[in-house]
Simulated assay, not measured.
Amino acid sequence: MREIPYGDFSKNDLDDKVAAINRKLFYRIFDPIALYQVSYDEEGNTANVIFMDINPAYERVMGVRRKDIIGKTFAEVWPSAERQWHQLVIDVARSGRSKHYEGESHDTGKYLYALGFSPVKGQVAVIFLDMTEWKRSQEALQKSESQLIRYREKLRDLVAKLSLAEEETRRDIAIKLHDKVGYSLAMIMHRLQHLYSETDKEGSRQKINEIMEMLSDVIQDTRNMTFEISSPLLYEVGLPAALESLAEQILKPHDIAVDFKAIGSPDNKLGRDINVLLYQMTRELLINVVKHAEATRVSIRVHFGKNKVRIVVEDDGRGFDDQKKRDSKCRGFGLFSIKERLYSIGGSIQIISEPGRGTIVSLVAPTGKDNGDAG
Protein backbone atom coordinates (compact mmCIF):
# COMPACT_ATOMS: atom_id res chain seq x y z
CA MET A 1 0.00 0.00 0.00
CA ARG A 2 1.40 3.37 -1.05
CA GLU A 3 2.09 5.90 1.75
CA ILE A 4 0.23 9.19 1.44
CA PRO A 5 2.73 12.07 1.57
CA TYR A 6 2.36 14.80 4.23
CA GLY A 7 4.79 17.47 3.15
CA ASP A 8 8.26 16.09 3.72
CA PHE A 9 6.89 13.16 5.78
CA SER A 10 5.00 9.98 5.05
CA LYS A 11 1.84 9.22 7.14
CA ASN A 12 3.82 6.80 9.29
CA ASP A 13 6.48 9.44 9.85
CA LEU A 14 3.80 11.93 10.87
CA ASP A 15 2.21 9.45 13.26
CA ASP A 16 5.61 8.90 14.85
CA LYS A 17 6.08 12.65 15.21
CA VAL A 18 2.67 13.11 16.83
CA ALA A 19 3.30 10.20 19.16
CA ALA A 20 6.64 11.72 20.16
CA ILE A 21 4.99 15.08 20.87
CA ASN A 22 2.21 13.45 22.89
CA ARG A 23 4.78 11.51 24.87
CA LYS A 24 6.69 14.70 25.70
CA LEU A 25 3.45 16.36 26.85
CA PHE A 26 2.60 13.26 28.91
CA TYR A 27 5.85 13.48 30.85
CA ARG A 28 6.04 17.26 31.15
CA ILE A 29 2.52 18.07 32.31
CA PHE A 30 2.48 19.28 35.91
CA ASP A 31 -0.47 17.21 37.09
CA PRO A 32 -0.29 13.46 37.75
CA ILE A 33 -1.40 11.24 34.84
CA ALA A 34 -1.73 7.48 34.73
CA LEU A 35 -2.42 5.35 31.65
CA TYR A 36 -4.17 2.02 32.23
CA GLN A 37 -4.87 -1.04 30.06
CA VAL A 38 -8.20 -2.70 30.85
CA SER A 39 -8.48 -6.40 29.96
CA TYR A 40 -11.57 -8.63 29.96
CA ASP A 41 -12.19 -12.35 30.38
CA GLU A 42 -14.10 -14.56 27.92
CA GLU A 43 -17.43 -13.61 29.46
CA GLY A 44 -16.75 -9.90 29.02
CA ASN A 45 -16.12 -9.18 32.68
CA THR A 46 -13.26 -6.92 33.70
CA ALA A 47 -10.21 -9.07 34.35
CA ASN A 48 -7.47 -6.58 35.17
CA VAL A 49 -6.60 -2.90 35.25
CA ILE A 50 -2.89 -2.68 34.47
CA PHE A 51 -0.58 0.32 34.73
CA MET A 52 0.84 1.12 31.26
CA ASP A 53 2.58 4.36 32.15
CA ILE A 54 2.71 7.26 34.61
CA ASN A 55 4.33 10.69 34.43
CA PRO A 56 6.85 12.21 36.90
CA ALA A 57 4.09 14.25 38.56
CA TYR A 58 2.29 11.00 39.40
CA GLU A 59 5.47 9.67 41.01
CA ARG A 60 5.90 12.84 43.04
CA VAL A 61 2.31 13.26 44.23
CA MET A 62 1.49 9.60 44.79
CA GLY A 63 4.87 8.69 46.28
CA VAL A 64 5.65 5.80 43.94
CA ARG A 65 8.34 5.01 41.33
CA ARG A 66 7.50 4.37 37.69
CA LYS A 67 9.74 1.32 37.40
CA ASP A 68 8.01 -0.32 40.37
CA ILE A 69 4.46 -0.16 39.02
CA ILE A 70 4.52 -0.38 35.21
CA GLY A 71 2.96 -3.68 34.15
CA LYS A 72 1.39 -4.27 37.55
CA THR A 73 -2.31 -4.32 38.25
CA PHE A 74 -4.12 -1.55 40.11
CA ALA A 75 -4.80 -3.93 42.99
CA GLU A 76 -1.09 -4.83 43.26
CA VAL A 77 -0.02 -1.19 43.43
CA TRP A 78 -2.88 0.03 45.61
CA PRO A 79 -4.20 -3.02 47.51
CA SER A 80 -6.16 -0.98 50.09
CA ALA A 81 -7.28 1.90 47.87
CA GLU A 82 -10.82 3.16 48.02
CA ARG A 83 -13.08 1.30 45.58
CA GLN A 84 -14.08 4.47 43.69
CA TRP A 85 -10.62 5.02 42.15
CA HIS A 86 -10.54 1.54 40.59
CA GLN A 87 -14.20 1.77 39.56
CA LEU A 88 -13.60 5.06 37.77
CA VAL A 89 -11.18 3.38 35.33
CA ILE A 90 -13.56 0.49 34.70
CA ASP A 91 -16.58 2.76 34.09
CA VAL A 92 -14.68 4.90 31.59
CA ALA A 93 -13.39 1.81 29.74
CA ARG A 94 -16.89 0.31 29.48
CA SER A 95 -18.74 3.47 28.44
CA GLY A 96 -16.01 5.20 26.46
CA ARG A 97 -17.16 8.45 28.06
CA SER A 98 -15.23 10.66 30.44
CA LYS A 99 -16.01 10.56 34.13
CA HIS A 100 -14.73 12.31 37.23
CA TYR A 101 -14.52 11.64 40.93
CA GLU A 102 -13.04 13.41 43.94
CA GLY A 103 -12.35 12.22 47.44
CA GLU A 104 -9.85 11.13 50.04
CA SER A 105 -7.03 8.78 49.08
CA HIS A 106 -5.87 7.27 52.35
CA ASP A 107 -3.00 5.39 50.68
CA THR A 108 -1.44 8.66 49.52
CA GLY A 109 -2.74 10.91 52.28
CA LYS A 110 -4.14 13.23 49.61
CA TYR A 111 -7.50 14.66 48.62
CA LEU A 112 -7.67 14.12 44.84
CA TYR A 113 -9.84 15.10 41.91
CA ALA A 114 -9.66 12.59 39.03
CA LEU A 115 -10.82 12.97 35.44
CA GLY A 116 -10.78 9.79 33.37
CA PHE A 117 -11.15 9.47 29.59
CA SER A 118 -10.48 6.78 26.99
CA PRO A 119 -8.00 7.86 24.27
CA VAL A 120 -8.05 4.37 22.70
CA LYS A 121 -10.48 1.52 23.18
CA GLY A 122 -9.32 -0.62 26.08
CA GLN A 123 -7.10 2.15 27.47
CA VAL A 124 -7.97 4.77 30.08
CA ALA A 125 -6.03 7.88 30.98
CA VAL A 126 -6.71 9.54 34.32
CA ILE A 127 -5.54 13.05 35.20
CA PHE A 128 -5.32 13.77 38.92
CA LEU A 129 -5.48 17.15 40.64
CA ASP A 130 -3.97 17.33 44.11
CA MET A 131 -6.60 19.32 46.06
CA THR A 132 -5.24 18.54 49.50
CA GLU A 133 -4.37 22.13 50.42
CA TRP A 134 -7.66 23.39 49.04
CA LYS A 135 -9.55 20.79 51.08
CA ARG A 136 -7.64 21.73 54.24
CA SER A 137 -8.36 25.40 53.63
CA GLN A 138 -12.04 24.62 53.07
CA GLU A 139 -12.22 22.56 56.26
CA ALA A 140 -10.42 25.32 58.19
CA LEU A 141 -12.89 27.86 56.79
CA GLN A 142 -15.85 25.67 57.72
CA LYS A 143 -14.41 25.25 61.20
CA SER A 144 -13.96 29.00 61.51
CA GLU A 145 -17.51 29.57 60.29
CA SER A 146 -18.82 27.03 62.80
CA GLN A 147 -16.90 28.74 65.58
CA LEU A 148 -18.21 32.11 64.43
CA ILE A 149 -21.77 30.78 64.52
CA ARG A 150 -21.22 29.41 68.02
CA TYR A 151 -19.71 32.70 69.19
CA ARG A 152 -22.62 34.59 67.67
CA GLU A 153 -25.11 32.34 69.43
CA LYS A 154 -23.26 32.89 72.69
CA LEU A 155 -23.32 36.63 72.06
CA ARG A 156 -27.06 36.55 71.42
CA ASP A 157 -27.60 34.56 74.59
CA LEU A 158 -25.39 36.97 76.52
CA VAL A 159 -27.22 40.03 75.16
CA ALA A 160 -30.57 38.50 76.12
CA LYS A 161 -29.33 37.59 79.60
CA LEU A 162 -27.91 41.08 80.10
CA SER A 163 -31.25 42.58 79.07
CA LEU A 164 -33.12 40.38 81.53
CA ALA A 165 -30.60 41.11 84.27
CA GLU A 166 -30.99 44.82 83.57
CA GLU A 167 -34.76 44.53 83.86
CA GLU A 168 -34.48 42.58 87.11
CA THR A 169 -32.28 45.36 88.50
CA ARG A 170 -34.67 48.02 87.24
CA ARG A 171 -37.65 46.26 88.78
CA ASP A 172 -35.85 45.85 92.10
CA ILE A 173 -34.99 49.57 92.15
CA ALA A 174 -38.55 50.52 91.15
CA ILE A 175 -40.05 48.37 93.91
CA LYS A 176 -37.75 49.85 96.54
CA LEU A 177 -38.42 53.36 95.23
CA HIS A 178 -42.14 52.75 95.45
CA ASP A 179 -42.23 50.86 98.74
CA LYS A 180 -39.65 52.79 100.72
CA VAL A 181 -39.24 56.26 99.25
CA GLY A 182 -42.84 56.53 98.08
CA TYR A 183 -44.18 55.33 101.43
CA SER A 184 -41.94 57.72 103.36
CA LEU A 185 -43.01 60.68 101.21
CA ALA A 186 -46.66 59.75 101.68
CA MET A 187 -46.19 59.65 105.46
CA ILE A 188 -44.49 63.06 105.42
CA MET A 189 -47.38 64.47 103.39
CA HIS A 190 -49.87 62.96 105.81
CA ARG A 191 -48.12 64.59 108.80
CA LEU A 192 -47.89 67.94 107.05
CA GLN A 193 -51.59 67.81 106.33
CA HIS A 194 -52.24 67.03 109.97
CA LEU A 195 -49.95 69.87 111.04
CA TYR A 196 -51.71 72.22 108.61
CA SER A 197 -55.12 71.39 110.14
CA GLU A 198 -53.88 71.94 113.70
CA THR A 199 -52.23 75.34 113.28
CA ASP A 200 -54.31 78.49 113.12
CA LYS A 201 -51.52 80.90 112.22
CA GLU A 202 -51.98 82.10 108.70
CA GLY A 203 -48.24 82.54 108.09
CA SER A 204 -47.47 79.03 109.25
CA ARG A 205 -50.33 77.54 107.23
CA GLN A 206 -49.04 79.29 104.11
CA LYS A 207 -45.51 77.93 104.61
CA ILE A 208 -46.83 74.42 105.28
CA ASN A 209 -48.98 74.63 102.15
CA GLU A 210 -45.96 75.64 100.07
CA ILE A 211 -44.01 72.67 101.44
CA MET A 212 -46.90 70.31 100.67
CA GLU A 213 -47.06 71.57 97.08
CA MET A 214 -43.31 70.96 96.69
CA LEU A 215 -43.68 67.56 98.28
CA SER A 216 -46.59 66.72 95.98
CA ASP A 217 -44.37 67.45 93.00
CA VAL A 218 -41.65 65.20 94.45
CA ILE A 219 -44.19 62.40 94.98
CA GLN A 220 -45.40 62.73 91.40
CA ASP A 221 -41.82 62.75 90.07
CA THR A 222 -41.06 59.66 92.12
CA ARG A 223 -44.08 57.86 90.65
CA ASN A 224 -43.08 58.86 87.13
CA MET A 225 -39.53 57.70 87.80
CA THR A 226 -40.82 54.39 89.11
CA PHE A 227 -42.72 53.83 85.85
CA GLU A 228 -39.74 54.89 83.76
CA ILE A 229 -37.40 52.54 85.56
CA SER A 230 -39.71 49.53 85.36
CA SER A 231 -43.38 49.61 84.56
CA PRO A 232 -45.45 47.74 87.15
CA LEU A 233 -48.15 47.45 84.46
CA LEU A 234 -45.95 44.97 82.62
CA TYR A 235 -46.14 42.54 85.54
CA GLU A 236 -49.58 43.37 86.89
CA VAL A 237 -51.68 43.93 83.74
CA GLY A 238 -49.69 42.76 80.73
CA LEU A 239 -47.68 43.83 77.70
CA PRO A 240 -50.30 45.89 75.77
CA ALA A 241 -51.17 48.13 78.72
CA ALA A 242 -47.49 48.57 79.58
CA LEU A 243 -46.61 49.52 75.98
CA GLU A 244 -49.46 52.01 75.70
CA SER A 245 -48.37 53.70 78.92
CA LEU A 246 -44.74 53.64 77.79
CA ALA A 247 -45.57 55.34 74.49
CA GLU A 248 -47.46 58.10 76.30
CA GLN A 249 -44.54 58.71 78.66
CA ILE A 250 -41.86 58.81 75.95
CA LEU A 251 -43.66 60.52 73.05
CA LYS A 252 -46.19 62.95 74.54
CA PRO A 253 -43.55 65.24 76.16
CA HIS A 254 -42.13 65.76 72.64
CA ASP A 255 -45.55 66.56 71.12
CA ILE A 256 -45.62 63.30 69.18
CA ALA A 257 -49.14 61.90 68.84
CA VAL A 258 -49.66 58.21 69.68
CA ASP A 259 -52.07 55.78 68.04
CA PHE A 260 -52.04 52.48 69.95
CA LYS A 261 -54.03 49.35 69.32
CA ALA A 262 -53.77 45.72 70.50
CA ILE A 263 -55.29 43.09 68.19
CA GLY A 264 -56.18 39.63 69.44
CA SER A 265 -54.94 38.00 72.61
CA PRO A 266 -52.35 35.30 73.30
CA ASP A 267 -53.68 31.75 73.60
CA ASN A 268 -51.30 31.31 76.49
CA LYS A 269 -50.03 34.00 78.81
CA LEU A 270 -46.78 35.42 77.50
CA GLY A 271 -43.69 34.30 79.35
CA ARG A 272 -41.96 36.81 81.58
CA ASP A 273 -38.82 36.90 79.46
CA ILE A 274 -40.79 37.48 76.25
CA ASN A 275 -42.73 40.28 77.94
CA VAL A 276 -39.58 41.92 79.24
CA LEU A 277 -37.63 41.68 75.97
CA LEU A 278 -40.47 43.02 73.81
CA TYR A 279 -41.07 45.86 76.25
CA GLN A 280 -37.37 46.81 76.23
CA MET A 281 -37.12 46.58 72.44
CA THR A 282 -40.18 48.77 71.93
CA ARG A 283 -38.79 51.32 74.38
CA GLU A 284 -35.55 51.49 72.37
CA LEU A 285 -37.50 51.95 69.12
CA LEU A 286 -39.53 54.81 70.63
CA ILE A 287 -36.39 56.48 71.95
CA ASN A 288 -34.92 56.22 68.43
CA VAL A 289 -38.03 57.93 67.06
CA VAL A 290 -37.62 60.81 69.51
CA LYS A 291 -33.89 61.17 68.79
CA HIS A 292 -33.73 60.69 65.02
CA ALA A 293 -37.08 60.51 63.21
CA GLU A 294 -38.38 64.09 63.56
CA ALA A 295 -41.84 62.50 63.62
CA THR A 296 -45.18 64.05 64.62
CA ARG A 297 -47.15 60.81 64.88
CA VAL A 298 -46.39 57.22 65.85
CA SER A 299 -48.62 54.20 65.36
CA ILE A 300 -48.11 51.11 67.52
CA ARG A 301 -49.85 47.83 66.79
CA VAL A 302 -49.58 44.69 68.90
CA HIS A 303 -50.83 41.61 67.00
CA PHE A 304 -51.30 38.34 68.87
CA GLY A 305 -51.34 35.30 66.61
CA LYS A 306 -51.62 31.63 67.44
CA ASN A 307 -47.93 31.12 68.13
CA LYS A 308 -46.40 34.56 67.60
CA VAL A 309 -46.73 38.14 68.72
CA ARG A 310 -45.88 40.99 66.37
CA ILE A 311 -45.23 44.59 67.39
CA VAL A 312 -45.25 47.15 64.58
CA VAL A 313 -43.96 50.67 65.26
CA GLU A 314 -44.59 53.13 62.41
CA ASP A 315 -43.62 56.80 62.38
CA ASP A 316 -44.21 59.62 59.89
CA GLY A 317 -40.67 60.95 60.24
CA ARG A 318 -37.96 61.65 57.69
CA GLY A 319 -37.09 57.98 57.05
CA PHE A 320 -33.97 56.95 55.18
CA ASP A 321 -33.12 55.76 51.71
CA ASP A 322 -30.41 53.40 50.57
CA GLN A 323 -29.38 50.05 52.02
CA LYS A 324 -26.10 51.48 53.26
CA LYS A 325 -27.90 53.89 55.57
CA ARG A 326 -30.26 51.14 56.63
CA ASP A 327 -27.37 48.82 57.45
CA SER A 328 -25.65 51.66 59.30
CA LYS A 329 -28.72 52.17 61.45
CA CYS A 330 -28.91 48.45 62.15
CA ARG A 331 -25.29 48.45 63.27
CA GLY A 332 -26.07 50.92 66.03
CA PHE A 333 -25.94 49.15 69.36
CA GLY A 334 -29.65 49.75 70.01
CA LEU A 335 -30.98 47.97 66.91
CA PHE A 336 -28.10 45.49 66.93
CA SER A 337 -29.07 44.60 70.48
CA ILE A 338 -32.72 44.24 69.46
CA LYS A 339 -31.80 41.99 66.54
CA GLU A 340 -29.58 39.74 68.66
CA ARG A 341 -32.12 39.48 71.48
CA LEU A 342 -34.89 38.60 69.04
CA TYR A 343 -32.78 35.92 67.37
CA SER A 344 -31.94 34.46 70.77
CA ILE A 345 -35.65 33.73 71.38
CA GLY A 346 -36.42 32.65 67.81
CA GLY A 347 -37.78 36.00 66.66
CA SER A 348 -36.97 38.45 63.86
CA ILE A 349 -36.92 42.14 62.94
CA GLN A 350 -37.87 43.83 59.67
CA ILE A 351 -37.26 47.49 58.79
CA ILE A 352 -38.98 49.34 55.93
CA SER A 353 -38.26 52.99 55.24
CA GLU A 354 -38.37 55.62 52.50
CA PRO A 355 -37.05 59.18 52.63
CA GLY A 356 -39.79 61.58 53.66
CA ARG A 357 -42.27 58.73 54.21
CA GLY A 358 -41.29 57.49 57.64
CA THR A 359 -40.13 54.15 58.96
CA ILE A 360 -41.85 50.89 59.86
CA VAL A 361 -40.18 48.44 62.24
CA SER A 362 -41.74 45.03 62.83
CA LEU A 363 -40.72 42.84 65.76
CA VAL A 364 -41.83 39.20 65.80
CA ALA A 365 -41.40 36.81 68.73
CA PRO A 366 -42.87 33.42 69.69
CA THR A 367 -45.59 33.46 72.33
CA GLY A 368 -44.95 29.98 73.68
CA LYS A 369 -41.36 30.37 74.92
CA ASP A 370 -41.50 30.80 78.67
CA ASN A 371 -38.24 31.23 80.53
CA GLY A 372 -39.77 32.28 83.77
CA ASP A 373 -42.97 33.07 85.62
CA ALA A 374 -45.22 35.49 83.89
CA GLY A 375 -45.90 37.41 87.05
Rank of each mutant, 00 (worst) to 15 (best):
R2K: 12
F9S: 07
N12C: 01
L14I: 13
D31W: 05
V49G: 09
I50C: 06
A57V: 11
G63W: 03
T73C: 06
E82R: 13
L88T: 04
Y101D: 02
E104A: 11
H106G: 01
T108G: 03
Y111E: 07
Y111H: 12
G116I: 09
D130V: 09
D130S: 08
K143H: 12
S146K: 14
L148F: 11
R150M: 04
R152E: 13
L158I: 07
K161F: 05
L164E: 12
A165G: 14
T169A: 13
T169G: 07
D172N: 09
G182T: 06
S184F: 12
S184K: 09
H190M: 08
S197F: 01
R205H: 05
Q206D: 03
Q206P: 00
N209D: 07
E210R: 06
M212I: 10
L215D: 01
Q220K: 14
Y235N: 06
D255W: 02
D255H: 13
F260I: 00
V289Y: 02
R297F: 07
V298R: 00
I300T: 01
V312R: 14
V313S: 04
V313E: 03
G317Q: 06
D321E: 14
K339G: 05
E340V: 02
L342K: 04
L342W: 04
G347F: 06
I360V: 15
V361P: 03
V364S: 08
G368Y: 14
G368D: 14
A374R: 09
A374S: 15
